[in-house]
């Protein structure tokens, strides 16, 4: 029995070891680097870095205070938060409506919808962003269509923050609807019929029965998208404005174009902290649900 336990441990340790070496270690190193530690594996990067804050005794918050003093960084930070919240909220509402529709309808229209929402999963994000920006851009298809329909002042969303939100919703749709639809499938018909028998309307059923019974899928969708959007590069790079930039794009320019890796990694640390908070929520929600289902 003891033998079996150790075999299991060793098998599971393989990906953990890989992640510790290539995710854990770099994260810790870059964390120290942002506080001014330039020794160890940081030495190579710090040799070519510009505008570096070095601390010989203890830690310094120099990099962080420098960043926060810059108006452009503050704008980037606020834009990132705004786009993340807007994307996740919009995605949740849209995919909830689609999942509800798929749960309660059959027929050819529902079959069309159940193929449609999956399509973005088939398209690499570089191409999705490119197709979307061509579609929503000024001089693009929607713009032309609005002009034909008699609205020449229709706003174009290419290279705007709202354009990034559209891109996030588009690319996030398959995963979100899949998770929510599979959650809704697990709600027994008898629950819904019982509620209808006592006179509950569709709206009430949705909000009072289906929503509380699907908190876990909703939290999974919200957290995974939140984290995805926080660290995204492709969609905001191709669809977003040049200023303010989202942090994923900003940290890349600091790293590659401005050759300021310390500043780039400081931004990464800040995004990590935001994401870690969101990730903790996901883990707690999972554990709580596990406990609940265990006691039943």
């Amino acid at each position: 029995m003891v033998n079996r336990r150790w075999i299991g441990f060793l098998m599971a340790a393989l990906p953990i070891a890989f992640l510790l070496a290539f995710v854990g270690l770099p994260t810790v190193e870059s964390f120290f680097y942002t506080f001014g530690y330039t020794g160890g594996p940081n030495a190579v990067v710090s040799e070519m870095a510009q505008n570096q804050v070095v601390s010989h005794h203890g830690a310094t918050l120099g990099v962080y205070t420098e960043l926060w003093k810059m108006a452009s960084f503050r704008a980037d930070f606020i834009a990132t938060i705004w786009v993340t919240i807007a994307s996740v909220a919009l995605l949740l509402v849209i995919s909830w409506v689609i999942a509800l529709y798929l749960r309660f309808s059959d027929g050819w229209l529902a079959r069309v919808a159940s193929s449609l929402y999956l399509i973005p999963m088939f398209i690499p994000s570089v191409i999705a962003s490119y197709a979307l920006v061509t579609f929503w851009n000024s001089g693009g298809f929607v713009d032309a269509l609005a002009k034909h329909l008699g609205d020449p002042n229709f706003p174009s969303f290419g290279y705007t923050l709202f354009g990034v939100v559209i891109g996030n919703v588009w690319t996030g749709l398959p995963f979100a609807v899949l998770m929510l639809a599979s959650g809704l499938r697990n709600v027994p018909d008898s629950y819904i019929e019982a509620a209808r028998d006592v006179g509950a309307r569709a709206w009430t059923v949705s909000l009072r029965i289906l929503l509380p019974m699907n908190t876990l899928p909703i939290i999974i969708v919200a957290t995974f998208n939140c984290i995805g959007v926080l660290g995204a590069y492709t969609v905001p790079y191709l669809m977003g404005p040049t200023a303010p930039q989202l942090l994923g794009v900003a940290m890349t320019s600091y790293f590659s174009a401005y050759n300021e890796p310390q500043q780039a990694e400081a931004m990464a640390v800040m995004v990590f902290i935001l994401a870690a908070a969101v990730g903790t929520w996901y883990v707690i929600a999972n554990l709580r649900l596990d406990r609940k289902s265990g006691s039943v």
Binding site: G24, P26, G248, F255, A268, Y282
Partner: peptide, 28 residues
């Protein structure tokens, strides 16, 4: 703990992670 630990890769925002890793990849 290990199972949730694997989630950590997804929890870290991609671009931030790549930049942190790039530092190590330079060193190695």
């Amino acid at each position: 703990a290990m199972f949730i630990g694997i989630f950590a890769t997804n929890a870290f925002p991609k671009m931030g992670l790549y930049i942190a890793i790039a530092g190590i990849l330079y060193a190695t």
